[in-house]
Nucleic acid binder design. Structure first.
Lengths: 185, 185
DNA sequence: CTAAAAAAAGGACAATTGTCCCAACTAAAA
DNA sequence: TTTTAGTTGGGACAATTGTCCTTTTTTTAG
């Protein structure tokens, strides 16, 4: 439920010794927007500690949560490659520390560090591989079954996330989520 | 609606002159499975001509179509990076020609051809960037609005795809799709 | 400490979508 | 040709989910 990338984070920590000025640590409290959709940025991020949500909001302001991001996950890197505006927003849930890396240094690392390059490729492959089965499952099964699945993956999910976030993650309304929770009791 | 990767395809054609033995052309008729989910492969593919669908099927055999793939799109590359089994199936819709590339040669190209490497990264970034807004839209709007959107993106969609495929692409039943089409007439 | 705001819970009804049918038509196979 | 299988279209009803609203509880801010 919360994506992580421990391998990537470990390697970032290694690289930071070699290129200390490439990695700027930023700290955020809870409920702060780090990146908002439809804007142009010149840096990307890797989460050092904490949890964020990645979401799209539609015209009515409803959030559609793509995934929850934990330690070692990158964000903002897609826009570097595609050249597009950011297509989702990132907001902190807990206190968060991130490494911020400029496009320029990122480009340098991709070209000159084969290990880093391969880790980026792998992390992107994993990102794609995670989404599809999740959306498929969410669609094929009832809300109750989805909640049961959440409880298995993350037994403490209710302590971390608000009901609203969970509903938006499952792609249902808060009312429907509450109904499903009632039936499970 | 049909993903393509012209830039990638062009570069493959270039590389093929330098490394002819790396790229094996395979031809398929319509409705053939090129890759099926939960299996291990040792090659990946790039579509030269034709259209395929990428889908997950659940226990009831219902297909959940992720996307339609056209010229220049890769598939089977995620498993190379993640080391996982294939997580979706690929079936041809029209006649299809693909370039087949072994993991071994792919690895070599990634390491030794910086342009190729960057194109792979870009194509993966685009893959991720496409899915999220689509699922978000599909979820936020009615079936009718989704059909109208399809017609704008691909006016000839009804000639290429069966009703069943369109329903599975939109994540609704055939019955619901028909109902929505009635209301639009 | 109190007021205001946000989060959580659920009632009542409406709208949407799914399930299970059946019928017509087309294409493919025997 | 005849049969079979697949595609398309839609009726009737059930189940699910959403919308709108109200109440209670919890959290936050002044």
């Amino acid at each position: 439920m919360i994506r992580t990338g421990p391998e990537f984070l470990t390697y970032i920590e290694v690289l930071r010794h070699k290129y200390p000025q490439y990695f700027i640590i930023e700290k955020y409290g809870s409920n702060e927007v780090i990146l908002s959709q439809q804007k142009r940025y010149h840096s990307l991020y890797c989460i050092k500690t904490g949890i964020t949500k990645c979401y799209l909001s539609d015209e009515n302001g409803k959030e559609f949560i793509q995934e929850f991001l934990g330690e070692g996950v990158n964000f903002g890197e897609l826009e570097f490659f595609s050249g597009h505006l950011s297509f989702c927003s990132i907001k902190t849930i807990t206190n968060v520390e991130v490494y911020k890396i400029s496009y320029q240094y990122y480009d340098f690392l991709l070209e000159n560090d084969a290990v880093f390059n391969r880790l980026v490729l792998k992390s992107m492959a994993l990102k794609i591989g995670f989404k599809a089965p999740r959306h498929s499952f969410q669609h094929s099964y009832s809300i109750e079954e989805n909640i049961i699945r959440l409880q298995k993956i993350a037994p403490n999910y209710a302590k971390i996330f608000s009901k609203n976030d969970i509903a938006n993650y499952l792609g249902v309304t808060l009312r429907s989520l509450n109904r499903a929770l009632l039936l499970l009791k």
